[in-house]
Write a protein that binds this DNA or RNA. Structure first.
Lengths: 308, 308
DNA sequence: TTGAAAGCGCTAACAA
DNA sequence: TTGTTAGCGCTTTCAA
């Protein structure tokens, strides 16, 4: 049997996809599990990319079933269980926290259901593919964009509900520090952590900074607009770097309170994720295990060219 | 017959792609016509995207035959004639000049061979699709990036062999001017035209400008590196904006002689072009008539994240 | 365990 | 013109 397979391979035999799928005569179902609550813009855009891929591949018999959670582990696990029960051919999902992700992956393996990760990676696993940015490198870029000032300090403001997936935040921050380490710039960097948008504390901090001692602020998630709000209130002009083209961020970018936004291209992520799964599982094609998205810098000048 | 078709449509009948292609049992051949000479980086990258699409679609019976010209109208026409003779299902090509393009399109229509344009658009025609940037808007962005200075002037340097397709150059320049018009900025803009890289004249011009009267230089094609070379020679620090991530440009971007490069994403252009043709012609799918690519700003800080 | 045959949905060739 | 049928290459079923 082995020998025969070898010969088959040697002769470069490729099964005919059309005949195969005609004989199988069935539709393939993928599951998609995403958050649906805040950061609406972001996940809505991801979804658009996924639906674009679904539409394109529907002629090839692809169906997608959608599952949404509300950012809580409980809700994530509930939807994950539903997927396991529905037994799709594969699932594309965005990890929430590490524990629930590993649990879900274990169940997928058992089912077995192929799985692909989008947006944030949990290493040590072997999904069909990961689609997303290299979070470390994007943080490194943020470091460059913040620049350097001898006498001033840089603020890293982490505004994140406790339950939120912090793996990405951590990687971005590490990348950020790495820029200064690499270039031997001994910056004074202070980290502020807020579990929720505690306006009062942040505002207090910033209003004390009218002395102009802060060079730049780095917000390693999509909540730069919260900092921008306070900068505006206190009439401060400090360089501000954040992530994601959500509408609130865009507003402040245009108004010159945010200087740079790093775009994760959620639409393309969604599209590529579904595509990779399809090519791997139905077409038996080889697919990159890791699909790093380009790290796009958005400034006031080009934001309008990157929307829609 | 009409009535039957209507009912068929109403019932949402979709032919089975697998059965259809199995019955047809043939490979579909596309032709691709591109320049192969200078700007090597750029067209090589386009080709990579095309080959990526070809590989992905080969399981669906797609074959691509490649034709290259050397940037001369004669060579373009020669290759075009070959394509007409070979009668592929469709051709994807980058227009050279308007006349040869229109001629080729006319012949394609007669053959009939479906055609799609990439990189630069010739309006008034109805290709299956156009894939490329909105040249006008990219020029507009370049205007923004050049900025404004009351007392200084801006240089638009056009370095282009006469035979080169000037439609894009024109659209970019018009977009550039439109930025200043729109914002009611009465800039002093001077245009320099060089049929070939006449180093002497350009150098003379720039070396006379040590008086610091130039605010910025806009090069509406991929030859910003030529200007950068002279800036370096004359030790001038003038804002320089150009197009395309070709290696010579990247070098000067990293060395701080070019400030911004507008990326046309040639690889994605090639990939999308083939994909659109395939989906339209073989899958009978609906395809956007115009696929405008995002206009990406590349600076020293993010160039390494946009390569490969 | 192996082999033969039916059938997936469509097209193209042929017959009426 | 219209209707009928063989066959595309594979999987699955059923028989040997």
């Amino acid at each position: 049997m082995e020998k025969v397979n070898k010969i088959i391979k040697k002769l470069g035999y490729k099964p005919n996809v059309f005949a195969r799928n005609l004989a199988l005569n069935k539709t393939h179902t993928f599951a998609v599990l995403l958050p649906k609550k805040e950061d609406l813009d972001y996940w809505k855009t991801t979804l658009e990319g996924i639906k674009k891929a679904e539409k394109e591949l529907s002629v090839f018999g692809l169906k997608i079933k959608y599952y949404f959670h509300n950012y809580s582990v409980k809700s994530f696990n509930l939807q994950a269980a539903k997927i396991i029960k529905d037994k799709p051919l594969a699932v594309l999902f965005a990890p929430l926290d590490t524990e629930s992700t590993l649990e879900f992956i274990a169940k997928c393996k058992k089912a077995p259901i192929s799985y692909a990760l989008i947006d944030s990676n949990i290493s040590n696993q072997t999904p069909v593919t990961y689609v997303g940015q290299d979070a470390f490198r994007s943080g490194h870029l943020a470091g460059k964009l913040c620049g350097y000032s001898k006498s001033k300090k840089i603020l890293v403001v982490k505004i994140a509900p406790e339950l939120e997936n912090n793996a990405v935040l951590k990687q971005r921050t590490e990348g950020f520090y790495s820029y200064y380490k690499e270039n031997k710039l001994s910056m004074d960097i202070e980290e502020l952590n807020f579990n929720t948008p505690e306006s009062v504390r942040l505002n207090k901090y910033l209003s004390n900074e009218k002395n102009n001692s802060i060079h730049a602020v780095f917000v390693p998630n999509s909540r730069a607009h919260i900092v921008a709000q306070h900068l505006k209130k206190n009439n401060l002009k400090i360089r501000l770097i954040g992530y994601d083209l959500i509408s609130k961020n865009i507003e402040f970018l245009k108004a010159d309170f945010i200087d740079f936004l790093i775009n994760q291209k959620p639409e393309q992520q969604g599209y590529i994720g579904i595509n990779a799964l399809y090519r791997k599982l139905i077409l038996k094609d080889n697919v990159n295990e890791i699909n790093y998205m380009p790290i796009e810098i958005i400034v006031k000048e080009n934001v309008e060219y990157s929307l829609g």
